[in-house]
Amino acid sequence: MTAAHTPQGSRVLDADDISRVISRISHEILEHAQGAHDLTVLGIQTRGVPLAHRIAARMAEIEGVAVPVGSLDITMYRDDLSLRGARPLHATDVPVEGVDDRLVVLVDDVLFSGRTVRAALDALSDIGRPRVVQLAVLVDRGHRELPLRADYVGKNIPTSLDQSVRVRMRDLDGVDEVVVEG
């Protein structure tokens, strides 16, 4: 694991690290779920989505079966409209299998206050009723404001509140890395 310092901050995960983390999380999910038969992976827009696709792809390699994967946009479920204003919407794509009576793993890049996950749970419950919901994140940076925890964590990174954690995914940003800034 490298901790290279860039002018923008310090890189805490590089492309190889992220690959390994995705692989580990995929194994953990499958182990816990005892197979992939009713598993659905939903990435939270925006950077949770490529992460979810890569986890699903890795699981497919391991298990040899396709894992349904989709995206969840939680913009309309946020509780900070009055603080941050309206933002553009992204797609919510639920796989054809739906979510009812399935094990749904929500995937996000960073777990911070927990408000995004709270909104995602609300959004999910408007779509259907999963058997179990679990949460996988690439980075847990602490400072929770709600009683929530992740089932699968790529890396715990202690931060101060004035720092920010920047996740870049090659599908969106051209590079895989996690950088702590500030």
């Binding site: 309309m76 409209l81 009055s82 941050r84 204003g85 309206a86 933002r87």
Partner: peptide, 10 residues
């Protein structure tokens, strides 16, 4: 959504 969202950002 867009108007109320924009209007409420102090």
């Amino acid at each position: 959504y867009l108007l109320l969202g924009a209007a409420e950002v102090d």
